[in-house]
Simulated scan of single mutants.
Amino acid sequence: MRIKLDLESEESFPEWAFGKHAIQSMIYSHLDSTEYRKLHDSKSFKFFTFSDLYPRGHFKPGVRKSLIISSPDEGFIETLYEKLLPDERFYLGNHSLRVISIKKFRLRPRKAFITGSPIVVNARPGMGRFFTFHHDGSLDYFIRAITENAVRKYSSFTGEYFQLEGPLFTRMIPRVRKDGWVDVYVRVNIRGKYFDVPGSTWKLLEAKITPDNRDFYAFVMDAGVWILNSLGFGFINPIRPTRA
């Protein structure tokens, strides 16, 4: 289940003026007086994520940007939807944004997806904190890691054993930077310290969806892929696949 916020600024400022942690803090602040008030301190999976603000570019008066928040927990989305108010203003860093519209909706998974924020994966032992294609380069490890994590999160959410036949995605086409690298870096605030977190974005993630695994892929679509989902990483959207 998802919420789409359309937002406008009343001043001009660069898009890097605040980070993902500011959006995360805004979400948690709207949950303060609800049954989800302790979610921030939970050591287990958070089961929500959010997109990058889009379209890309600097903030300017009258220029509308959108944010999508998703979760397989319908209670979470319903609660947040009730707390977010039309025409309210909230601060992200030192800048305020006005809510123009709020929409609550559901999407069904299709056989293809696109990333709406970078996917972040833990590195293998001895390879640093986060996986990068530049330093590791193993697509096999990347696919195995995101598959195992998705199954573990789904089993944790449902309380039932689940086994996926095959990898999470059967066809993957990355977005490649102008310098030829796949890795992108996002500066985030984690426990009061700033880090450049590497991830990857993908213009096609194709899956083999069947009646037996459709609920699983609906979960993955709304919970996010791999780690740091509650910090706005691993967000994916369903798309109609095109032949590349």
Results as ranks from 00 to 15, higher is better:
residue 20 K to H: 04
residue 101 S to L: 08
residue 121 V to E: 09
residue 92 L to V: 10
residue 145 A to Q: 10
residue 211 P to T: 00
residue 209 I to D: 05
residue 7 L to D: 00
residue 20 K to M: 03
residue 209 I to K: 06
residue 171 R to I: 08
residue 136 D to R: 08
residue 126 G to P: 09
residue 1 M to P: 03
residue 54 Y to G: 08
residue 244 A to L: 15
residue 102 I to G: 10
residue 174 P to N: 13
residue 191 R to E: 14
residue 121 V to T: 10
residue 222 D to F: 00
residue 23 I to G: 02
residue 84 L to C: 15
residue 79 T to R: 02
residue 103 K to T: 13
residue 129 R to F: 11
residue 203 K to W: 09
residue 116 G to C: 12
residue 168 L to Y: 06
residue 171 R to M: 09
residue 112 A to I: 10
residue 211 P to S: 00
residue 210 T to N: 06
residue 3 I to P: 04
residue 195 F to H: 08
residue 211 P to A: 01
residue 11 E to A: 12
residue 15 E to V: 01
residue 26 M to T: 10
residue 135 H to T: 11
residue 232 G to A: 15
residue 35 E to K: 00
residue 136 D to E: 05
residue 194 Y to K: 15
residue 132 T to I: 13
residue 226 W to Y: 14
residue 198 P to H: 15
residue 41 D to F: 07
residue 165 E to G: 10
residue 9 S to E: 04
residue 181 W to N: 13
residue 98 R to L: 08
residue 81 Y to W: 13
residue 238 P to E: 04
residue 134 H to D: 15
residue 135 H to G: 11
residue 11 E to N: 13
residue 128 G to Y: 13
residue 117 S to Q: 09
residue 5 L to T: 08
residue 156 S to M: 04
residue 13 F to S: 02
residue 101 S to Q: 10
residue 95 H to C: 03
residue 78 E to T: 02
residue 230 S to G: 02
residue 199 G to H: 15
residue 119 I to P: 04
residue 119 I to E: 06
residue 135 H to A: 14
residue 13 F to A: 02
residue 189 N to M: 01
residue 75 G to M: 03
residue 183 D to I: 15
residue 35 E to N: 05
residue 68 I to R: 02
residue 243 R to L: 14
residue 227 I to T: 07
residue 206 E to F: 10
residue 60 K to V: 04
residue 171 R to H: 12
residue 55 P to A: 07
residue 51 S to Y: 01
